[in-house]
Amino acid sequence: MMETFEKIEDIEIRLLLEALYHRYHYDFRDYAMSSIKRRLRQAKENMGLATISAMQERVLHDPDMLPQMLRYLTVQVSEMYRDPSYFLAIRQLVIPHLRTYPSLKVWVAGCSTGEELYSLVILFREEGLEERTLFYATDINPDALHQAEAGIYDAERVRQFSENYRQAGGKTSLSDYYHSHYNRCILDKSLRRNVVFSDHSLVTDQVFGEMHLISCRNVMIYFDRDLQDRVVGLFKDSLPRQGFLGLGAKESLRFSTHANAFRDFVRTEKIYQRTDS
């Protein structure tokens, strides 16, 4: 009986993902099924629906359901200077190479609510590169992009942000870049002056420019192998020779068909450099 339920649920989920794609052009069909299944079960329970099929009916006939679905299907978990050693490696080992360029483009792919973006902007400001850098912050979730552009976070998170910043080699105090108001941390609006926020799907969209640094951390772990390979190819085509790609701690280029286009630059931090291959 349980096996039959599982099979029916798998069919329902695939039909729902097809509905999302054909109705709204959001493509989750090649995301890791275990992750999608877990999130949709939570959505079904929270919405008080009996089946995934009932969710599909609402998605098809009620456009207001789309933002709710995106909140469940896209992971919005981040913090400023998450994994501080990654940002320390960017500061100490990548920045010296980027200094040689008269102008720079940095792409934070899957920027979520903006914490990683602002971590890099502050780092580049402290290293004297902000003025010559254009930052692209992209995500498929419009609500997340709106939060990222606002740059407002719960004050209770700031203690962890500040400790991460210190461990990442911060040169002053993180409090120099925000002010507090009604239990909110509001980042200085000057941090957004060189930032372009844009809707972009790693699943369906193409290259939109040549970047010197791409940071896409803890995004590909939710994709299946074929989609991961597609995304790595997109990054390869976006980077010039000697450009840099940063991934999350649990991500790797090891099994990608594009792996020979990169070399390990900082192996422990999953930072790669584009090669001639």
Rank of each mutant, 00 (worst) to 15 (best):
A259C: 04
P63G: 01
R274S: 05
L117T: 05
A109G: 12
E126S: 08
L17Q: 02
Q147C: 11
Q147S: 12
I152D: 07
S256A: 03
Q228L: 06
F5C: 09
G170A: 07
P102A: 10
A249D: 11
Y86N: 08
E149Q: 14
R125M: 10
E18V: 11
K250Y: 12
L187F: 15
A89F: 06
E45K: 15
N46Y: 10
D27R: 04
D199M: 15
M80I: 11
Y177R: 08
Y26C: 03
S162K: 07
T100V: 12
D10L: 03
L123M: 06
T51H: 10
T74V: 09
Q92L: 12
I11Q: 14
L174C: 12
V75Y: 03
E6D: 13
R41V: 12
I8E: 14
A54T: 04
E79C: 07
S238N: 05
V231Y: 04
A32Y: 09
G170L: 12
S198V: 02
H97R: 14
S175D: 13
E115V: 05
L20D: 03
L247V: 05
K250H: 13
G246Q: 00
D226P: 01
G246D: 00
K7F: 11
H25L: 14
Y153K: 08
Y86Q: 11
Y21W: 15
P84E: 12
F5E: 15
L120I: 08
M55S: 00
I52Y: 01
G110M: 06
S119P: 03
Q242L: 03
F124A: 00
I8L: 14
L129C: 09
T268C: 08
S190G: 02
Y24S: 09
R99M: 13
G233E: 15
D188P: 02
K250N: 13
Y21A: 11
E3D: 15
T138S: 11
T133N: 07
G169E: 04
I271F: 08
D83L: 02
